[in-house]
């Protein structure tokens, strides 16, 4: 956020009345909760104690059972239209949504009730964004992201596996300051975080431009930190601010650690960005071992063989008789 908003931000953050925040968790690995616990700009203690009234979050809250349920009911009733809700995890829809139930209610029922009454919904992580891992083929539980499972919500998607807590904290602070969500892209992801291709921000980009590539894990290029393009890095296809904000308090990020990007903040990335270690998807109907290049080469090879055979037959066959002369044609 620009510096001229500092006073406004401080004022907003220091407001007496803190908005209530509810954190719902459905089908996921809790990685997004783990991630927000490692947020340091601001750190989670500040967020929980000072910025927001973080009242419901199954993983970190003290209450449990009937007390927790009563608390959620009270927030939905008393804070209607004022509280923020963060959703983590996918929402199953197959077989009536029975694959994820809390207190006898399906995830879909809980999301409908809590999100519909909220001021805004923040879907964190790939699962809440579009179903993530849970929705990857064959998607046995019919999992969906929040915006598809509960259509018509005012929702902001913090895609990524997990979401980057720096971005989520930024959205929360933006909301506190302006009482509105930041500018969004076509997938309802905030543009400030998802507007640019990873490849364009990558610290290894110079190696790409120079043609210095890792060709095998652990080879000389890999040890020297060359570009991971040939190892199937999806940086050129994915948008995220991962190279800039990085992870775990700006410690590192996948490509710095020597692993290609898997496009975790992209829509349906488990299905669309795989195979993670190949540049292009496998061609349907040819199995995973056959690359697109091999199929293309085979097509060209077959064509060359075909025309060679055709040409040989043409040469072996006697040349056609000369056309009938015009005089003869007149006589006939």
């Amino acid at each position: 956020m620009p510096e001229r908003y500092l006073a406004q931000t401080v004022a907003a953050v220091g407001k007496a009345r803190k908005p209530v925040l509810v954190w719902l968790q459905f089908q996921d690995c809790t990685g997004c909760s783990e991630s927000i616990l490692r947020s340091s700009h601001p750190d989670v203690a500040d967020v929980v104690l000072d910025l927001l009234s973080w009242e419901y979050h199954e993983v970190i809250m003290a209450g449990a059972g009937g007390y927790a349920n009563a608390l959620l009911d009270r927030i939905v009733k008393n804070e209607k239209g004022k509280y923020l809700v963060v959703v983590e995890g996918a929402i199953p829809t197959a077989e009536g949504g029975i694959h994820c139930m809390i207190n006898g209610h399906t995830a879909l029922e809980i999301a409908e009730r809590v999100c519909r009454n909220a001021a805004a919904t923040i879907a964190v992580g790939a699962c809440a964004f579009d179903g993530g891992l849970v929705r990857a083929k064959p998607n046995p539980t019919g999992a969906l992201g929040v915006q598809e499972a509960v259509p018509g919500l005012k929702v902001i998607n913090m895609a990524g596996c997990p979401h980057n807590p720096v971005n989520t904290a930024a959205v929360l602070v933006h909301y506190l300051t302006f009482n509105d969500l930041p500018a969004l892209d076509q997938y309802n992801r905030p543009l400030f975080a998802y507007g640019r291709i990873i490849h364009d921000q990558c610290e290894r980009r110079a190696h790409y431009d120079a043609g210095r590539f890792v060709t095998e894990w652990g080879d000389e290029g890999h040890r020297k930190g060359w570009c991971l393009y040939k190892m199937g890095c999806k940086g050129p296809a994915a948008t995220f601010n991962c190279p800039v904000v990085q992870w775990n308090d700006h410690t590192s990020w996948p490509i710095r650690a020597g692993h290609g990007c898997i496009g975790c903040a992209s829509p349906r990335f488990w299905d669309t960005m795989s195979p993670f270690y190949d540049r292009l998807p496998s061609v349907p109907g040819f199995g995973v071992e056959v690359t697109a290049g091999e199929i293309g080469m085979a097509l060209v090879g077959a064509t060359v063989a075909g025309v060679t055979a055709h040409g040989l037959i043409t040469m072996i066959k006697p040349a056609p008789k000369p056309p009938v002369e015009p005089e003869e044609r007149k006589e006939a």
């Binding site: 043609g211 590539f213 393009y229 040939k230 540049r279 292009l280």
Partner: peptide
């Protein structure tokens, strides 16, 4: 697609 000149 497949940078075949590597490491020059």
């Amino acid at each position: 697609h497949d940078p075949f000149i590597v490491g020059q």
